[in-house]
Design a binder for these strands. Structure first.
Lengths: 158, 158
DNA sequence: AATAAATAGTCAACATATTGACTATTTATT
DNA sequence: AATAAATAGTCAATATGTTGACTATTTATT
């Protein structure tokens, strides 16, 4: 009767949200461990993915940040470290001197290819107990939460 | 036909996992905005919650870290900053001189109470479109992912 | 054209996260 | 009892995340 613990004092709704946070942190840890073997961190890997999927393998630093929900100030350091390791190039946009363009290098592309298989295997293990219907249902629910939190965050900073 | 974008190049399974990451980050941002008004960060708030729910409002720093999945080295700085703001006390365990005990202060307890209503309201807004069945189903799926990622992480560091 | 406002990015300061080295204390082994 | 091993915690170095101040450039307004 006496023994209390953290989980018991959370409301059910709070448990749901904290579970999502914990799942995300676990997953980031899983992937970070893989990426580190290739010299990349989780956000660095994601920048490369965005550039790889962009036209000509390049994009504005601000656009990459917008896609990843990473603030501009944070992108500067991330991009500099990626450049130092030669995964990307940084160059000025001739058409607008304010703009910094990021471009993935051959080394960056090669590294992504080498990571791909191991990363996909990990995701398959994580989701192995889910049917396609399960995954669709889960994704739809998560999307609702993303929309709600995005709206809340906009309202709070305005 | 030409226009590529980031989302299209993700596998479906990857989309599911990245959506969870994004939802978690959005949620942490929502709550951080609330907590900041009371002088607390997201992890600081969670430490207070763990202590509040612990016997006598106190616990070993390592136990708090274990519950929150925060490495010990990280706990040191978090606890020091919480102590500086007088939300907690840090004291040595007389029975084992290696151990650091964290204890929530009255200021800490009061602050948690003041945060509670606003925080619960935000969570209710985020989950307002979900039935109880929806939330149960979601939580169960997320728990499966937590178990799978926990097992993977253990296997990778061993 | 000159000025004001908006946009893009960087930098500095600080909090948080992770790893590995290190100290101190306790427990186990010989 | 002396030594070895395990445990608890801190510290230093580095990366990441966030805010606010700042510079440079471009666009809008007068």
């Amino acid at each position: 009767m006496a023994k209390t613990n953290y989980q018991n004092d959370l409301t059910f709704e709070e448990k749901v949200m904290m579970a999502i946070v914990r799942a995300a942190e676990n997953f980031k840890r899983t992937h970070s461990t893989i990426f580190k073997k290739y010299g990349l961190s989780f956000p660095q890997y994601n920048i490369l993915r965005v550039l790889e999927a962009s036209d000509l393998g390049q994009n504005k630093i601000s656009s990459v940040g917008r896609i990843m929900l990473v603030p501009g100030a944070n992108m500067t350091g991330l991009a500099k470290r990626l450049e130092k390791q030669e995964f990307i190039l940084r160059k000025r946009d001739p058409g607008d001197e304010r703009v910094t363009i990021l471009a993935i290098t051959d080394k960056g592309k090669t590294t992504l290819k080498r990571i791909e298989e191991e990363k996909d295997k990990a995701i398959d293990i994580i989701l192995k107990d889910f049917t396609e219907t399960d995954k669709n249902g889960l994704l739809n629910k998560i999307k609702i939460i993303i929309r709600a939190t995005t709206a809340l965050n906009k309202g709070m900073t305005r």
